[in-house]
Design a protein around this nucleic acid. Sequence first.
DNA 1: TGAGCTATATATAATTA
DNA 2: TTAATTATATATAGCTC
Lengths: 174, 174
Amino acid sequence: MNMENQRKKTSGRKKIEIKKLDKQTSKQVTFSKRRQGLFKKASELCVLCGAHAAIVVFSPADKLYCFGQPNTDTILDSYISGTTEFGDLKSAGNSQNYEEYNKQYEEALKMLELEKKKLADAENLARFWNTNDWWNDSIDYMSSDQLEQFMVSIYELRRKLIEKADEHVMKLNM
Amino acid sequence: MNMENQRKKTSGRKKIEIKKLDKQTSKQVTFSKRRQGLFKKASELCVLCGAHAAIVVFSPADKLYCFGQPNTDTILDSYISGTTEFGDLKSAGNSQNYEEYNKQYEEALKMLELEKKKLADAENLARFWNTNDWWNDSIDYMSSDQLEQFMVSIYELRRKLIEKADEHVMKLNM
DNA sequence: TGAGCTATATATAATTA
DNA sequence: TTAATTATATATAGCTC
Protein backbone atom coordinates (compact mmCIF):
# COMPACT_ATOMS: atom_id res chain seq x y z
CA MET A 1 0.00 0.00 0.00
CA ASN A 2 2.67 2.32 1.04
CA MET A 3 4.40 3.94 -1.87
CA GLU A 4 7.77 3.48 -0.30
CA ASN A 5 7.53 -0.18 -1.12
CA GLN A 6 7.87 0.52 -4.77
CA ARG A 7 11.23 2.07 -4.47
CA LYS A 8 14.22 -0.08 -5.03
CA LYS A 9 15.68 -0.86 -1.71
CA THR A 10 19.15 -1.38 -3.02
CA SER A 11 20.88 -0.76 -6.27
CA GLY A 12 21.55 -4.47 -6.35
CA ARG A 13 24.61 -6.31 -7.43
CA LYS A 14 26.98 -4.33 -9.58
CA LYS A 15 29.42 -5.60 -12.10
CA ILE A 16 32.94 -5.43 -10.85
CA GLU A 17 36.28 -5.75 -12.50
CA ILE A 18 38.36 -8.67 -11.40
CA LYS A 19 41.23 -6.73 -9.97
CA LYS A 20 42.68 -6.26 -6.56
CA LEU A 21 40.25 -4.60 -4.20
CA ASP A 22 41.81 -1.74 -2.35
CA LYS A 23 39.45 -1.24 0.54
CA GLN A 24 40.57 -3.49 3.33
CA THR A 25 37.09 -4.06 4.64
CA SER A 26 35.49 -4.99 1.35
CA LYS A 27 38.43 -7.22 0.64
CA GLN A 28 37.67 -9.01 3.87
CA VAL A 29 33.96 -9.29 3.23
CA THR A 30 34.41 -10.40 -0.32
CA PHE A 31 36.94 -12.97 0.71
CA SER A 32 34.63 -14.42 3.27
CA LYS A 33 31.69 -14.66 0.92
CA ARG A 34 33.62 -15.96 -2.02
CA ARG A 35 35.55 -18.50 -0.02
CA GLN A 36 32.27 -19.90 1.17
CA GLY A 37 31.00 -20.00 -2.36
CA LEU A 38 34.15 -21.68 -3.58
CA PHE A 39 33.96 -24.41 -1.00
CA LYS A 40 30.33 -24.96 -1.75
CA LYS A 41 31.06 -25.32 -5.45
CA ALA A 42 33.81 -27.77 -4.67
CA SER A 43 31.51 -29.75 -2.48
CA GLU A 44 28.89 -29.89 -5.19
CA LEU A 45 31.44 -30.98 -7.74
CA CYS A 46 32.49 -33.84 -5.51
CA VAL A 47 28.97 -34.99 -4.77
CA LEU A 48 27.66 -34.66 -8.31
CA CYS A 49 30.57 -36.25 -10.08
CA GLY A 50 32.08 -38.47 -7.45
CA ALA A 51 35.26 -36.47 -7.68
CA HIS A 52 37.76 -35.91 -4.92
CA ALA A 53 39.19 -32.52 -4.23
CA ALA A 54 41.19 -30.45 -1.83
CA ILE A 55 41.44 -26.72 -1.53
CA VAL A 56 43.91 -24.76 0.50
CA VAL A 57 43.43 -21.02 0.81
CA PHE A 58 45.43 -18.38 2.57
CA SER A 59 43.35 -15.31 3.27
CA PRO A 60 44.70 -11.82 2.66
CA ALA A 61 45.61 -11.91 6.34
CA ASP A 62 47.33 -15.26 5.74
CA LYS A 63 44.85 -17.22 7.69
CA LEU A 64 44.53 -20.79 6.50
CA TYR A 65 41.31 -22.32 5.29
CA CYS A 66 40.93 -25.70 3.73
CA PHE A 67 38.47 -28.02 2.20
CA GLY A 68 38.78 -31.70 1.42
CA GLN A 69 36.65 -34.48 0.12
CA PRO A 70 36.99 -36.93 1.79
CA ASN A 71 39.60 -34.82 3.56
CA THR A 72 42.34 -32.44 2.68
CA ASP A 73 45.31 -34.55 3.64
CA THR A 74 44.22 -37.63 1.77
CA ILE A 75 43.91 -35.68 -1.45
CA LEU A 76 47.14 -33.82 -0.96
CA ASP A 77 48.90 -37.05 -0.17
CA SER A 78 47.67 -38.52 -3.43
CA TYR A 79 48.74 -35.44 -5.26
CA ILE A 80 52.18 -35.44 -3.73
CA SER A 81 52.88 -39.12 -4.19
CA GLY A 82 51.65 -38.88 -7.73
CA THR A 83 53.75 -35.91 -8.59
CA THR A 84 56.77 -37.04 -6.64
CA GLU A 85 57.34 -39.70 -9.25
CA PHE A 86 58.04 -36.86 -11.57
CA GLY A 87 60.30 -35.24 -9.06
CA ASP A 88 63.09 -34.82 -11.56
CA LEU A 89 60.93 -33.21 -14.11
CA LYS A 90 59.30 -31.06 -11.56
CA SER A 91 62.51 -29.84 -10.08
CA ALA A 92 63.48 -28.68 -13.50
CA GLY A 93 60.34 -26.66 -13.87
CA ASN A 94 59.89 -25.51 -10.33
CA SER A 95 62.12 -23.75 -7.91
CA GLN A 96 62.26 -26.82 -5.79
CA ASN A 97 64.67 -29.72 -5.95
CA TYR A 98 63.76 -33.31 -5.65
CA GLU A 99 65.37 -33.90 -2.30
CA GLU A 100 63.61 -31.05 -0.73
CA TYR A 101 60.39 -32.18 -2.20
CA ASN A 102 60.88 -35.71 -1.10
CA LYS A 103 61.67 -34.56 2.38
CA GLN A 104 58.48 -32.67 2.51
CA TYR A 105 56.67 -35.62 1.14
CA GLU A 106 58.01 -37.75 3.93
CA GLU A 107 57.02 -35.16 6.43
CA ALA A 108 53.60 -35.21 4.97
CA LEU A 109 53.50 -38.96 5.20
CA LYS A 110 54.58 -38.84 8.80
CA MET A 111 51.93 -36.34 9.49
CA LEU A 112 49.35 -38.43 7.79
CA GLU A 113 50.30 -41.41 9.83
CA LEU A 114 50.09 -39.36 12.94
CA GLU A 115 46.80 -38.04 11.91
CA LYS A 116 45.49 -41.43 11.15
CA LYS A 117 46.51 -42.61 14.56
CA LYS A 118 44.97 -39.69 16.27
CA LEU A 119 42.06 -39.70 13.91
CA ALA A 120 41.71 -36.02 14.25
CA ASP A 121 39.11 -35.86 11.58
CA ALA A 122 37.17 -38.63 13.13
CA GLU A 123 37.32 -36.88 16.43
CA ASN A 124 35.68 -33.96 14.80
CA LEU A 125 33.18 -36.24 13.25
CA ALA A 126 32.38 -37.86 16.51
CA ARG A 127 31.87 -34.50 18.08
CA PHE A 128 29.62 -33.60 15.29
CA TRP A 129 27.53 -36.66 15.74
CA ASN A 130 27.34 -36.12 19.41
CA THR A 131 26.64 -32.46 19.57
CA ASN A 132 24.29 -31.92 16.73
CA ASP A 133 20.72 -32.78 16.60
CA TRP A 134 19.69 -31.70 13.19
CA TRP A 135 18.94 -35.18 12.07
CA ASN A 136 16.86 -35.78 15.12
CA ASP A 137 15.06 -32.56 14.51
CA SER A 138 14.61 -33.25 10.87
CA ILE A 139 12.53 -36.33 11.37
CA ASP A 140 9.83 -34.07 12.64
CA TYR A 141 9.32 -32.88 9.13
CA MET A 142 9.02 -36.23 7.49
CA SER A 143 5.90 -37.92 6.29
CA SER A 144 5.23 -41.53 7.13
CA ASP A 145 6.64 -42.72 3.88
CA GLN A 146 9.72 -40.66 4.28
CA LEU A 147 10.17 -41.86 7.81
CA GLU A 148 9.93 -45.39 6.65
CA GLN A 149 12.56 -44.87 4.01
CA PHE A 150 14.70 -43.11 6.48
CA MET A 151 14.50 -45.95 8.92
CA VAL A 152 15.56 -48.37 6.27
CA SER A 153 18.61 -46.23 5.79
CA ILE A 154 19.29 -46.07 9.47
CA TYR A 155 18.88 -49.79 9.71
CA GLU A 156 21.38 -50.29 6.95
CA LEU A 157 23.78 -47.98 8.64
CA ARG A 158 23.33 -49.81 11.89
CA ARG A 159 24.15 -53.08 10.17
CA LYS A 160 27.30 -51.58 8.72
CA LEU A 161 28.26 -50.19 12.07
CA ILE A 162 27.93 -53.53 13.73
CA GLU A 163 29.98 -55.06 10.98
CA LYS A 164 32.57 -52.37 11.53
CA ALA A 165 32.43 -52.82 15.25
CA ASP A 166 33.21 -56.47 14.81
CA GLU A 167 36.41 -55.54 13.11
CA HIS A 168 37.32 -53.55 16.14
CA VAL A 169 36.45 -56.48 18.37
CA MET A 170 34.04 -54.38 20.27
CA LYS A 171 31.25 -55.83 22.20
CA LEU A 172 28.00 -54.24 21.38
CA ASN A 173 24.50 -55.15 21.81
CA MET A 174 22.28 -52.92 19.92
CA MET B 1 12.11 -22.83 -40.63
CA ASN B 2 8.88 -21.17 -39.92
CA MET B 3 8.33 -18.34 -37.55
CA GLU B 4 7.07 -20.49 -34.76
CA ASN B 5 10.66 -20.67 -33.71
CA GLN B 6 10.04 -17.64 -31.58
CA ARG B 7 9.19 -20.31 -29.10
CA LYS B 8 11.69 -21.20 -26.49
CA LYS B 9 14.57 -22.97 -28.07
CA THR B 10 15.49 -24.88 -24.98
CA SER B 11 13.86 -25.48 -21.68
CA GLY B 12 16.81 -23.74 -20.15
CA ARG B 13 18.68 -24.61 -17.04
CA LYS B 14 16.85 -26.90 -14.69
CA LYS B 15 17.22 -27.15 -10.99
CA ILE B 16 19.07 -30.25 -9.99
CA GLU B 17 19.55 -32.00 -6.73
CA ILE B 18 23.07 -32.16 -5.46
CA LYS B 19 23.45 -35.89 -5.48
CA LYS B 20 25.60 -38.32 -7.36
CA LEU B 21 24.84 -38.26 -11.06
CA ASP B 22 24.32 -41.71 -12.43
CA LYS B 23 24.74 -41.15 -16.14
CA GLN B 24 28.40 -41.50 -16.94
CA THR B 25 28.28 -38.99 -19.76
CA SER B 26 26.54 -36.24 -17.89
CA LYS B 27 28.89 -36.85 -15.01
CA GLN B 28 31.79 -36.13 -17.32
CA VAL B 29 30.24 -33.10 -18.89
CA THR B 30 29.21 -31.66 -15.58
CA PHE B 31 32.61 -32.32 -14.14
CA SER B 32 34.30 -30.55 -16.97
CA LYS B 33 32.07 -27.51 -16.80
CA ARG B 34 32.07 -27.21 -13.06
CA ARG B 35 35.77 -27.78 -12.69
CA GLN B 36 36.32 -24.88 -15.04
CA GLY B 37 33.92 -22.78 -13.04
CA LEU B 38 35.62 -23.72 -9.79
CA PHE B 39 39.06 -22.74 -11.03
CA LYS B 40 37.71 -19.49 -12.34
CA LYS B 41 36.15 -18.68 -8.99
CA ALA B 42 39.40 -19.51 -7.26
CA SER B 43 41.29 -17.28 -9.61
CA GLU B 44 38.90 -14.41 -8.99
CA LEU B 45 39.17 -14.87 -5.25
CA CYS B 46 42.93 -14.64 -5.48
CA VAL B 47 42.93 -11.57 -7.66
CA LEU B 48 40.22 -9.69 -5.84
CA CYS B 49 41.41 -10.35 -2.34
CA GLY B 50 45.10 -10.96 -2.79
CA ALA B 51 44.63 -14.46 -1.43
CA HIS B 52 46.71 -17.49 -2.27
CA ALA B 53 45.11 -20.76 -3.06
CA ALA B 54 45.67 -24.23 -4.42
CA ILE B 55 43.16 -26.73 -5.66
CA VAL B 56 43.73 -30.38 -6.41
CA VAL B 57 40.96 -32.33 -8.07
CA PHE B 58 40.72 -35.94 -9.09
CA SER B 59 38.09 -36.45 -11.74
CA PRO B 60 35.65 -39.35 -11.57
CA ALA B 61 38.15 -41.12 -13.84
CA ASP B 62 40.90 -40.20 -11.38
CA LYS B 63 42.58 -37.79 -13.67
CA LEU B 64 44.40 -35.05 -11.85
CA TYR B 65 43.70 -31.36 -12.30
CA CYS B 66 45.19 -28.61 -10.28
CA PHE B 67 45.17 -24.91 -9.77
CA GLY B 68 47.54 -22.72 -7.83
CA GLN B 69 48.12 -19.08 -7.19
CA PRO B 70 50.99 -18.38 -7.49
CA ASN B 71 51.37 -22.13 -8.04
CA THR B 72 50.09 -25.32 -6.55
CA ASP B 73 53.26 -26.57 -4.94
CA THR B 74 54.08 -23.35 -3.18
CA ILE B 75 50.71 -23.28 -1.50
CA LEU B 76 50.79 -26.94 -0.64
CA ASP B 77 54.26 -26.57 0.82
CA SER B 78 53.02 -23.82 3.07
CA TYR B 79 50.09 -25.90 4.06
CA ILE B 80 52.19 -28.95 4.79
CA SER B 81 54.86 -27.19 6.76
CA GLY B 82 52.22 -25.36 8.70
CA THR B 83 50.22 -28.41 9.57
CA THR B 84 53.22 -30.62 10.11
CA GLU B 85 54.42 -28.41 12.86
CA PHE B 86 50.97 -28.53 14.09
CA GLY B 87 50.84 -32.30 13.89
CA ASP B 88 53.87 -32.53 16.11
CA LEU B 89 52.31 -30.36 18.73
CA LYS B 90 49.19 -32.32 18.50
CA SER B 91 51.04 -35.55 19.08
CA ALA B 92 52.34 -34.01 22.25
CA GLY B 93 48.76 -33.69 23.30
CA ASN B 94 48.39 -29.98 23.08
CA SER B 95 44.76 -29.17 23.37
CA GLN B 96 45.16 -25.56 22.44
CA ASN B 97 46.17 -26.56 18.98
CA TYR B 98 43.41 -29.01 18.80
CA GLU B 99 41.06 -26.10 19.06
CA GLU B 100 42.82 -24.33 16.30
CA TYR B 101 42.61 -27.38 14.21
CA ASN B 102 38.96 -27.44 14.89
CA LYS B 103 38.41 -24.29 12.96
CA GLN B 104 38.16 -26.38 9.87
CA TYR B 105 35.63 -28.46 11.62
CA GLU B 106 33.67 -25.39 12.44
CA GLU B 107 33.75 -24.32 8.84
CA ALA B 108 32.29 -27.64 7.91
CA LEU B 109 29.73 -27.25 10.61
CA LYS B 110 28.69 -23.92 9.24
CA MET B 111 28.19 -25.41 5.84
CA LEU B 112 26.19 -28.17 7.38
CA GLU B 113 24.05 -25.64 9.14
CA LEU B 114 23.32 -24.11 5.80
CA GLU B 115 22.44 -27.48 4.44
CA LYS B 116 20.17 -28.03 7.35
CA LYS B 117 18.12 -25.05 6.43
CA LYS B 118 17.83 -26.18 2.88
CA LEU B 119 16.98 -29.65 3.91
CA ALA B 120 14.18 -28.45 6.08
CA ASP B 121 12.12 -29.57 3.18
CA ALA B 122 11.47 -33.09 4.21
CA GLU B 123 11.23 -34.40 0.71
CA ASN B 124 14.79 -33.53 -0.06
CA LEU B 125 15.82 -34.85 3.27
CA ALA B 126 14.40 -38.24 2.68
CA ARG B 127 16.09 -38.45 -0.66
CA PHE B 128 19.29 -37.28 0.89
CA TRP B 129 19.31 -40.07 3.37
CA ASN B 130 18.67 -42.58 0.71
CA THR B 131 21.15 -41.48 -1.85
CA ASN B 132 24.16 -40.32 0.07
CA ASP B 133 26.73 -42.47 1.63
CA TRP B 134 29.08 -40.07 3.27
CA TRP B 135 28.16 -41.14 6.73
CA ASN B 136 28.66 -44.74 5.85
CA ASP B 137 32.01 -43.86 4.42
CA SER B 138 32.94 -41.76 7.36
CA ILE B 139 32.82 -44.57 9.83
CA ASP B 140 35.87 -45.98 8.16
CA TYR B 141 37.88 -43.22 9.69
CA MET B 142 36.73 -43.64 13.23
CA SER B 143 38.62 -45.23 16.08
CA SER B 144 37.02 -47.72 18.38
CA ASP B 145 36.14 -45.11 20.92
CA GLN B 146 34.65 -42.87 18.36
CA LEU B 147 32.73 -45.67 16.81
CA GLU B 148 31.35 -46.52 20.16
CA GLN B 149 30.23 -42.98 20.74
CA PHE B 150 28.81 -42.83 17.32
CA MET B 151 26.84 -45.98 17.85
CA VAL B 152 25.41 -44.57 21.01
CA SER B 153 24.21 -41.66 18.94
CA ILE B 154 22.74 -43.90 16.36
CA TYR B 155 21.10 -45.95 19.01
CA GLU B 156 19.56 -42.84 20.46
CA LEU B 157 18.36 -41.79 17.08
CA ARG B 158 16.91 -45.19 16.50
CA ARG B 159 15.02 -44.94 19.74
CA LYS B 160 13.68 -41.58 18.73
CA LEU B 161 12.70 -42.88 15.37
CA ILE B 162 10.79 -45.73 16.86
CA GLU B 163 9.07 -43.31 19.15
CA LYS B 164 8.26 -41.16 16.18
CA ALA B 165 7.13 -44.12 14.18
CA ASP B 166 4.73 -44.99 16.92
CA GLU B 167 3.07 -41.68 16.45
CA HIS B 168 2.61 -42.57 12.86
CA VAL B 169 1.23 -45.95 13.87
CA MET B 170 3.76 -47.73 11.79
CA LYS B 171 4.87 -51.22 12.47
CA LEU B 172 8.56 -51.53 12.69
CA ASN B 173 10.86 -54.29 13.43
CA MET B 174 14.22 -52.88 14.09
C1' DT C 1 34.64 -34.50 -27.04
C1' DG C 2 34.01 -30.13 -27.45
C1' DA C 3 31.69 -25.64 -28.56
C1' DG C 4 27.64 -22.73 -28.56
C1' DC C 5 22.90 -21.58 -27.10
C1' DT C 6 19.10 -20.17 -24.12
C1' DA C 7 16.45 -20.01 -20.08
C1' DT C 8 16.90 -20.44 -15.49
C1' DA C 9 19.21 -21.24 -11.07
C1' DT C 10 22.71 -19.37 -8.19
C1' DA C 11 26.12 -16.33 -6.48
C1' DT C 12 27.04 -12.09 -4.84
C1' DA C 13 27.80 -6.46 -4.64
C1' DA C 14 25.70 -3.02 -2.44
C1' DT C 15 23.07 -1.77 1.20
C1' DT C 16 20.47 -1.90 5.55
C1' DA C 17 19.21 -3.69 10.13
C1' DT D 1 30.97 -7.97 13.02
C1' DT D 2 27.30 -11.04 11.77
C1' DA D 3 23.06 -11.24 9.23
C1' DA D 4 19.21 -10.16 5.94
C1' DT D 5 17.60 -8.09 1.52
C1' DT D 6 17.39 -7.27 -3.17
C1' DA D 7 18.74 -6.39 -7.77
C1' DT D 8 21.74 -7.96 -10.88
C1' DA D 9 25.74 -10.56 -12.72
C1' DT D 10 27.25 -15.16 -13.48
C1' DA D 11 27.20 -20.04 -13.75
C1' DT D 12 25.19 -23.90 -15.85
C1' DA D 13 21.53 -27.87 -17.22
C1' DG D 14 19.69 -29.50 -21.11
C1' DC D 15 20.01 -29.17 -26.05
C1' DT D 16 21.86 -28.88 -30.60
C1' DC D 17 25.49 -29.23 -33.85
